[in-house]
Design a protein around this nucleic acid. Sequence first.
DNA 1: TATTTTTTTGTACCATTTCGCAATAAATTC
DNA 2: GAATTTATTGCGAAATGGTACAAAAAAATA
Lengths: 219, 219
Amino acid sequence: MVQKNKKPPVTKIDAPVPPKRRGRPRAYEPDVALGKALDLFRKDGFAATSLDDLSAATGMNRPSLYGAFGDKRELFIKSYRRYREDARVAMGNVFRDELPIRKRLERIYAVALDIYLSGESGPRGCFTVMTAASEAVHDPDIRAMVLEGFVELDKAFAACFRRAKEKGELPESADAIVLAQLASATIHTIAIRARARMPRKELEAIVNGAIDVMVGTAR
Amino acid sequence: MVQKNKKPPVTKIDAPVPPKRRGRPRAYEPDVALGKALDLFRKDGFAATSLDDLSAATGMNRPSLYGAFGDKRELFIKSYRRYREDARVAMGNVFRDELPIRKRLERIYAVALDIYLSGESGPRGCFTVMTAASEAVHDPDIRAMVLEGFVELDKAFAACFRRAKEKGELPESADAIVLAQLASATIHTIAIRARARMPRKELEAIVNGAIDVMVGTAR
DNA sequence: TATTTTTTTGTACCATTTCGCAATAAATTC
DNA sequence: GAATTTATTGCGAAATGGTACAAAAAAATA
């Protein structure tokens, strides 16, 4: 529904080039299976998601799951990595587009809201904020990923604001770092509030208010 | 350490007045038991906290737990309510104190950081943001409490900013609602980042930057 | 003082779920 | 057919949420 962009790839760019694996062929596609696992973890969190749930959702039985992705924790980490990659792809373009700063921020938050509000049974918020951060206290590896996620977002926003200053859209006195942290904070607050089913309209109002403060009311 | 205010109540105002309960006396104090349960839920979340863990932490065996607080979900809700009450007490005074707006915000965030960074085995963040919001998708009652929590915080901040405008500390053009949402967003971002063990110094830097943007750089 | 009532505790249990794995069967290439 | 890779079944030990039931401790009553 969304990927109608780009010219229709007549020939798939990176055709899987089936390398003639030996042995019984897999009955699942690891990528889609991981996607299903991610959906579950996003919805229920780590502890409340059982291997049986994951097995049912992916269509793989437990031993296959285990063989393909390792134990539950590894599967969780791989799901989280996948989430981050997806998010990077979704937001990357918007972050790079050379739009006026206000427009750019609006687009970024719109994409974020799309991610946070998606979900069959209610909005799921942000994996980093909701689920991964919970595990972060106990698991150093996850904690490192989460921290890195925060830094990555801060940096991306900071680059936006620096660019805006260069283009004269922001006064020289503006502090790109501080603005970036505010922009991240706004991402975080809408992620959490989305999870509590705050309506999109209200979330957008918060976003608009924040943008006003960050780049000025002038449109 | 904090409640040295009010004259020392020579006679305890509401002395428990042991009302001669019949039957075998309780071997626990419900209040402290609930506190222990809250600690566990804050640390591990709902699903990862077992009744055995709760039983061990509170010193009550499972049937007693059940009799005193109901099933696990009820205990969770009561723990969350308790958390909110505690937080209200801790922050309420600071919110009400008639300090200059900057000082007031600094104090508020300092108290918040104290709450978020506490915990024997690592900082636990904010119950509302971390744990309760996770359950909010599935549980309408918890969701209502969480949403109410957001609103309550927004309102408290908004009152601060309105007061500051009245006192001429902020320009008439300042939008108290928008500023309040930014202030809440800052609370949320430090709550999450604390959970990922971001050092207090960095969190304070974020807070200071946010305050600068909200009330101006002038000290 | 002895007995009854009331309330809580402690032990034990149950049905279910959970994670992980071993053993075996199936499908494919060499 | 042999080798290799995956799928399926099903086991098992532990943990989970919840509860039944008797023993214990106190007040109320006789």
